[in-house]
């Protein structure tokens, strides 16, 4: 098939819009959508300092690449933070990809490891409890990202979450009955404690498949191995369900997230307190007396 805009061969058919895209027009479309999103949501202000969380997978690499492009339009500072959770046979590969691509983009980076910061690797936690790996990993990773971004005096923390990730999280939080997490949204971090660096997700309305095509089309360096703990996570099942629904009815993922975004302000008002306290052990913000990070670390 040919591109809907020129005579070149199409590389992608966007079922949601009925458009065919060649490589060049796909790039233009993707970059435009990114720039428009950042502008309309006012995600990054002029001269702000942004921390970008980079894992070495296609989402965060694409995000770093696009933020670098955004820097050509107006000035802001950017530093990358790479978290090394200590997952043998996996994180070392994605780490190498992250370093290589960031060096090529001339983005400076900081590597923070579980081993150095908590004196333990994720592997050491999860020997007997693989089903729990993702929640331990997530809590400690967010803890470190926030702490490091704050230390670097960044006012935003950008992550590469995509439309698929976001839709899955909406469903998973609801299925777990975790109404607090379900009701948070991104603004939570802005309003609830000044120890939280405000989080932004510039790719949250991009389909995961489109991000893969963008990363391949632009020959970005990323690693596509799968984390050994991923198979134990409920997310995989929810992903399959959403993929099937999208196949039956294109735009399902989009409708799910935009519908959720519409009720989020109300959820926020109903379930989220105005402010929270500090952890008795480490001083990081938390709703309980002791933060999740310290609980996991047995402090």
């Amino acid at each position: 098939m040919k591109c809907s805009r020129c005579r070149k061969d199409a590389i992608y058919f966007q079922r949601q819009s009925g458009q065919y895209y060649c490589g060049d027009h796909f790039n233009t479309h993707f970059i435009k959508k990114f720039m428009r999103g950042v502008r309309e949501e006012q995600l990054i202000k002029k001269n702000e300092k942004v921390a970008v969380a980079v894992s070495g997978g296609k989402d965060s690499i694409t995000l770093a690449y696009l933020l670098k492009k955004l820097q050509q339009r107006y000035p802001f500072q950017m530093e990358a933070i790479i978290i090394d959770e200590g997952i043998s046979g996996y994180r070392n590969l994605t780490l190498d990809a992250a370093k290589a691509q960031l060096e090529m983009l001339e983005i400076s980076y900081h590597i923070e490891s579980f081993k150095d910061c908590f004196d333990r690797t994720l592997d050491s936690f999860e020997k007997n409890n693989k089903e729990n790996a993702c929640s331990t990993c997530g809590v400690l990773r967010r803890y470190l990202l926030n702490k490091k971004a704050r230390e670097l005096s960044c006012t935003k923390l950008a992550t590469g979450h995509n439309l698929d990730d976001e839709g899955q999280s909406v469903i998973m939080n609801l299925m777990r009955g975790d109404i607090i997490r379900f009701s948070r949204g991104q603004n939570y971090y802005k309003k609830i404690s000044d120890k939280f660096v405000e989080r932004i997700k510039p790719l949250r309305y991009f389909l995961e498949k489109e991000i893969v095509i963008f990363a391949l089309n632009n020959k970005l360096i990323f690693d596509s191995s799968e984390c050994p703990y991923a198979v134990y996570a409920m997310r995989g099942e929810v992903r399959k369900f959403l993929d099937r629904m999208e196949d039956l009815r294109p735009t399902t993922k989009y409708s799910l997230l935009s519908g959720y975004d519409k009720i989020l302000p109300t959820l926020n008002k109903c379930f989220i307190p105005e402010s929270i306290g500090a952890c008795k052990v480490c001083g990081e913000p938390t709703m309980d007396g002791v933060c999740m990070g310290c609980k996991i670390l047995g402090k």
């Binding site: 061969d9 992608y12 058919f13 079922r15 389909l207 995961e208 498949k209 391949l216 089309n217 196949d247």
Partner: peptide, 14 residues
């Protein structure tokens, strides 16, 4: 279709 990107003889295709 959501699960894979198809690459024919080295080129991404619909």
């Amino acid at each position: 279709k959501e699960e894979y990107v198809a690459i024919k003889n080295g080129k991404i295709v619909c």
